[in-house]
Each structure stands twice: as structure tokens, then as C-alpha cells.
């Protein structure tokens, strides 16, 4: 019964989120394009599937994963505090938290629906040269690295811009070495990682950690994990592509002989 109420509420909220998109599409269709959309019935059916699927997905997350995730973050951060240190916070008191952050960052990214969408499109457009699975794993490794570093930053209380600007510098250097075709996709993969699964998980993690580490304020230090999760995938996707083409070069050199 409770589940049914929640389904109804989420379905309503999701429909409400989509309303502006539908309105914009509708207005431009009537006022500007005035052209029959091919396969309209099929597209409508797809739209209904997207709404229904997203609703079920979000309710399931809310019901199954977010409560455990929050409890686990609390238990893990509290466990680290069990041995209070007179000398203040030491960064290595929180090793399990970093490990958990990296693992959950990776797992949440693999399940992220908008990343699935972009990876499918990329595989399609590149004619299979860029595999959807490889791309998603590369992005997930980036999020894992970023989130672990972001937790380290919260514990140590070092300024956020140092990390982000340094990551930008790495991205810029990689950009000049990477193959041109991967660059737009790599830049896009930074933005798609943070949607319906990752943002709530990271927000709970950041706020929970900042609240439990002495001397950190959840309001000031809780922000920033999403920024980490949006920059580091660019680095890993560019790195992945460079590695793949390097391997291909070595292979073709071998078979050429």
C-alpha cells in the first residue's frame, strides 16, 4: 500500500519534470515546424516507457538502496571516529570511507541511466569502434577516483579549487594528445555521470562525512563531491582512448612484421 502511494507520487513528480520538455516540443511543433513527426505513435509509446521505467527505477532506489546507503555512510564514518585522536583528524583514519566512496561511486555510475543512453548513442555513432561497456567502465573508474579524492578533501579540509583546477590542467594536457574523435564524447561524459543515482548517493556521502569529521561543517565542506565526479571521468575517458589506440598500434606493428 505504501509502495503504491510512493509509485503514484513519483509518477506524478516525474511527469511534472517532463512537462516543460513536452510543452517546449509541442509549442515549436505547432508554431514553427508544422510537420508530421514520423512514427509518432511509436515515439509516444517510447515516451510512456521512459516515464514508467524512470518512475519504477526511482521508487526502487528510494525503497531499497538509499536507506541502506545512508545507514552505511553513518556507520562507516562513526566507525572511523571510534578512536578519537588528541592530535586532531588524521586522513588515514578514514581509509574504509575512501574505499566505500570509490566502490559506491563506481557502482552508482554503472547503473546511471543517462550514461547508458550516451554510451549506446556513442557505440551507434562510432559504428561500434567505441564500445558502450568500455566507455561506461572508464567513466565509472573516473567517478570512483574523483569521489575518493573528494572524501579525502573533506577529511583534510583542503580547498576545493586546488583539486578541480589541477584536474582541469590534466584534462587540457590530455586534450592535446588525444585523438580528435574522442574529445567531445569525453567532455560530455563529465556531465552525464551525475544524474538520478549518483547525485543523491554523493550528497548523502558528502553531508554525512562532513557532519561526522570534527571541524568540518556540512554546509561549507559537504559541497564538492559532484564537482569531483564531473571532472575525473573526462580524464579517465581520454586516458582509456589513448590506451586503446596505443594497444592497437602495438598489435598492428606486431602483425605487420
Amino acid at each position: 500500500m505504501e509502495l503504491a502511494a510512493m509509485l503514484a507520487r513519483t509518477a506524478f513528480a516525474t511527469t511534472f519534470d517532463v512537462a516543460p520538455i513536452v510543452a517546449v516540443l509541442f509549442v515549436f511543433q505547432i508554431a514553427v515546424l508544422r510537420r508530421r513527426v514520423p512514427n509518432l505513435r511509436r515515439i509516444m509509446r517510447g515516451f510512456v516507457y521512459v516515464l514508467l521505467g524512470l518512475t519504477l527505477f526511482l521508487v526502487g532506489l528510494e525503497e531499497a538502496l538509499f536507506p541502506i546507503g545512508e545507514t552505511m555512510v553513518r556507520q562507516l564514518t562513526a566507525g572511523a571516529l571510534a578512536a578519537p585522536d588528541a592530535a586532531g583528524v588524521r586522513w588515514d583514519d578514514y581509509l574504509t570511507v575512501y574505499a566505500f566512496a570509490a566502490a559506491i561511486g563506481f557502482a552508482a555510475t554503472v547503473a546511471e541511466p543517462s550514461l547508458i543512453a550516451v554510451a549506446l548513442k556513442a557505440e551507434d555513432v562510432s559504428g561500434g569502434a567505441i564500445g558502450a561497456q568500455g566507455l561506461r567502465v572508464a567513466v565509472a573508474v573516473g567517478v570512483a577516483t574523483g569521489v575518493a579524492l573528494g572524501c579525502l578533501r573533506i577529511v583534510t579540509g583542503t580547498p576545493l579549487p586546488w583539486y578541480i583546477v589541477a584536474a582541469y590542467a590534466v584534462v587540457i594536457m590530455q586534450t592535446f594528445r588525444a585523438s580528435r574523435t574522442i574529445i567531445p564524447l569525453a567532455y560530455d561524459s563529465g556531465g552525464v555521470t551525475t544524474s538520478s543515482v549518483t547525485v543523491p548517493v554523493l550528497a548523502a556521502l558528502g553531508l554525512g562525512l562532513a557532519a561526522s569529521v570534527p571541524g568540518r561543517s556540512p554546509l561549507i565542506d559537504g559541497f564538492g563531491l559532484i564537482a569531483f565526479a564531473s571532472v575525473f571521468p573526462i580524464i579517465t575517458v581520454l586516458g582509456y582512448s589513448t590506451a586503446v589506440s596505443a594497444i592497437a598500434r602495438v598489435r598492428s606493428a606486431k602483425t605487420g612484421r
Partner: peptide, 10 residues
């Protein structure tokens, strides 16, 4: 269902 909807609709 979402992924099927992506391919059919979005």
C-alpha cells in the same frame, strides 16, 4: 523499461 523507451521514443 527505460532503456527500451529510449530506443523507441527519446
Amino acid at each position: 523499461i527505460f532503456v527500451q523507451g529510449l530506443k523507441l521514443g527519446l
